[in-house]
């Protein structure tokens, strides 16, 4: 038996919004310690890893490890029927082919129960190696979203260059070019830790997709090392994270 109750549906909506554009279907791996998800996008260019500890939930019970195959578009449709301040309980019996979602209004005078068909997804898990990132940048999540949006107007590729002076985002296309540079600020909203400078090139549309997680967190952490995937991490309150890994582009 798996049962988890969140006091606010809004958090679940934000998490699903952060996933649904890059993943149409995915498996939630539920265990005693919490809920995990790991999946590649269809093109196998990026990887999403999510972790939510059990103490995020008002009530959490997972008697045995369980994998719930979900169609995230369908889940989104169900979540649209709920109000953000509803409490939500998700429940699935062992070996069940359905997920139950129950929404309870804040005034507790309305309950709505939904059943969502589970999918049998054959999802392989990848081993993510421990990486000592040469550059780690923290910045406001809204600033990162704005930069990704602005650069994608110019070019399909975005170059991210990180040095001790700051982080620079560049795009160069037919209509022209753009360079946006952020330096470390004294008020601490942008911080740059650099062991060695790194410059890598990425597909801007994936970066844009990652920024769907912006409502989850005020800050985003960007980590880079030479010739390895970029890591973009959004914390989920104090209870977990969504991490997006993006393979770099290389010169042919």
């Amino acid at each position: 038996m798996f049962e988890a109750r969140l006091s606010s549906t809004a958090l679940l909506k934000k998490i699903v919004d952060a996933l649904k554009e890059i993943l149409h279907q995915s498996t939630l791996d539920c265990s005693d310690s919490g809920i995990q998800l790991q999946a590649m996008d269809n093109s196998h260019v990026s990887l999403v890893s999510m972790s939510l500890r059990s103490d995020c939930f008002e009530k959490y019970r997972c008697d045995r490890n369980l994998s719930l195959g979900l169609d995230l578009r369908s889940l989104t449709k169900v979540l649209k029927c709920a109000s953000g301040d509803d409490a939500v309980t998700i429940k699935s019996a062992d070996k069940a082919d359905k997920l139950q979602l129950s929404f309870e209004s804040a005034s507790m005078d309305r309950t709505a129960d939904y059943e969502l068909r589970l999918l049998n997804l054959d999802q392989e898990h990848l081993a993510i190696p421990e990486t000592d990132y040469a550059c780690v940048v923290h910045m406001p999540a809204t600033e990162f979203a704005r930069i990704c949006r602005d650069l994608s107007t110019f070019s399909e590729s975005v170059v991210i260059a990180c040095t001790k002076d700051g982080i620079k985002f560049s795009a160069n296309g037919e209509m022209g070019s753009v360079n946006i540079k952020l330096s470390e600020t004294s008020k601490g909203d942008v911080s740059v830790q650099v062991e060695e400078p790194v410059t890598l090139s990425f597909a801007g549309r994936y970066l844009n997709t990652f920024t769907r997680a912006t409502p989850l967190s005020e800050k985003v952490k960007i980590s880079m090392a030479p010739e390895v995937p970029l890591l973009v991490e959004y914390p989920i309150e104090d209870y977990g994270y969504i991490r997006y890994y993006l393979a770099p582009k290389v010169d042919e």
Partner: peptide, 12 residues
């Protein structure tokens, strides 16, 4: 050229 994430992360 776009690299695949599987060229960095291998199946468990």
């Amino acid at each position: 050229m776009q690299k695949s994430i599987t060229s960095f992360f291998k199946p468990k």
